[in-house]
Design a binder for these strands. Structure first.
Lengths: 228, 228
DNA sequence: GAATGGTCTTGACTTAAATCAAGGAGAATT
DNA sequence: AATTCTCCTTGATTTAAGTCAAGACCATTC
């Protein structure tokens, strides 16, 4: 692994910062470790600081009263979360949970504002970060609202498999993928099974091989239906 | 109406700017007028600049191949749109259309970047703008994914009626509200009719009066079902 | 290697909301 | 005042996806 500073350099929010700035950030940030399944924060909690994922996997999600979950994003190493609520000074609008043993750097609200005020590079980086998030959300809204489940699954598989030789290694549980795609495990399961049966993909557990990318793409764009 | 500078002062993106900055912005911005129903830009168009709505109403939306529409946001006077795509240097991810005769200030991409680079106030304002958008989107995703249509409608009515004496004056077509709420006009119509029949609201065209806010709130949070 | 526990799959069924198709109501135009 | 449009409503029906329930498939760990 890298030392903390090398790590920070690769975080979008802290890109292009001079050595002494990075050091300062490390000084003010606090390391926290969460076990698999542990809650990092819950919707409604006061947003007392931002989180940078040093190691592990985290999901940010919304829950409905009757227990249905919608994943907003999966955070990978180097990912930042909680920043919008902190910036707005509002409670977290969603919850975050460690999906595996995870280490985060926690930067308290006031320190984060100091950074933001005093370093134009950081605010530019933050603009980039928020813009990317917005783009992702537009895509998610589009996906959930305008596409049926087989389109969503096809699109997701093709996106992940991009430049990877048509191999998808789901790095998350299928039930969580279902939640991200705005559906439930049973429905996802049925769609994947159907894709196997129609020869679009091969599936061994979490490893999926796209055997007919052209046809899968036609389903993704809604030109063809999976169920006929 | 106001003169242009007074107007600009009230735009979130240009808040707290000195006189000469505002003047400069007016110089580089170009006034464009769109008729009702006219397209301002279409998904996929190169994002050559940002738009500030001077007068009128605009909707930003996604279309599916088979023609279903999802409204991402309604822009009111003083609203800004197109800024994310411009910032990212990507084509517009959605389309924009004037819902009534509208005047916009168009700020070309390069000028916008000059502003952003040279004025930290503007980048801070932009951070605020993007944060608010993200918050709205989280809410929209939550709404569409986790709530049924009667919950969505109740929530929307209560939100709009807030501090307005339980009167909602829909300033948009019902069909467009449907599209914003991720449903279709027929379904919205049925829900509203049912609400009238159960004494939750009174409706005269686009004017809706909430006659039983407590009960409506119980439906909004899913504590009670509209259809029983 | 049996037993436990978590995920995933499959089947039968229900249901919310979409679709299709007519009408109706209101505003605008002639 | 009649015609045309646009938008909204209502009814009959279909359908995609959710629910409920049972079993299968792992991977641990005892």
């Amino acid at each position: 692994m890298f030392d903390d500073e090398t790590f920070l350099k690769k975080v979008l929010l802290f890109k292009n910062l001079p050595h002494d700035q990075l050091k300062k950030i490390l000084e003010i940030s606090e390391k926290k470790v969460f076990r698999k399944g542990q809650t990092i924060f819950t919707e409604g909690d006061p947003a007392d600081g931002i989180y940078v994922l040093r190691e592990g996997k985290v999901k940010v999600f919304k829950l409905s009263l009757d227990g249905k979950e919608q994943v907003l994003h999966f955070i990978g190493e180097g990912g930042v979360f909680g920043e919008v609520a902190v910036f707005l000074g509002e409670p977290f609008p969603a919850s975050a949970e460690a999906q595996s043993e995870s280490t985060v750097l926690f930067i308290p609200r006031s320190s984060f504002f100091d950074l933001l005020k005093n370093d134009p590079t950081i605010s530019m980086n933050m603009l980039a970060l928020l813009s990317l998030r917005l783009k992702e959300f537009v895509h998610l809204i589009d996906t959930i609202s305008l596409k049926d489940v087989s389109q969503r699954v096809s699109t997701y598989l093709l996106f992940i498999a991009e430049k990877k030789d048509n191999i998808v290694d789901l790095r998350i549980k299928k039930s969580e993928l279902a939640s991200f795609l705005g559906t439930i495990p049973e429905t996802l399961s049925r769609v994947l099974t159907k894709m196997v049966k129609t020869g679009l993909i091969k599936m061994e557990g979490a490893r999926i091989e796209i055997t007919n990318p052209e046809e899968l793409k036609r389903i993704a764009i809604g030109e063809k239906s999976l169920f006929l």
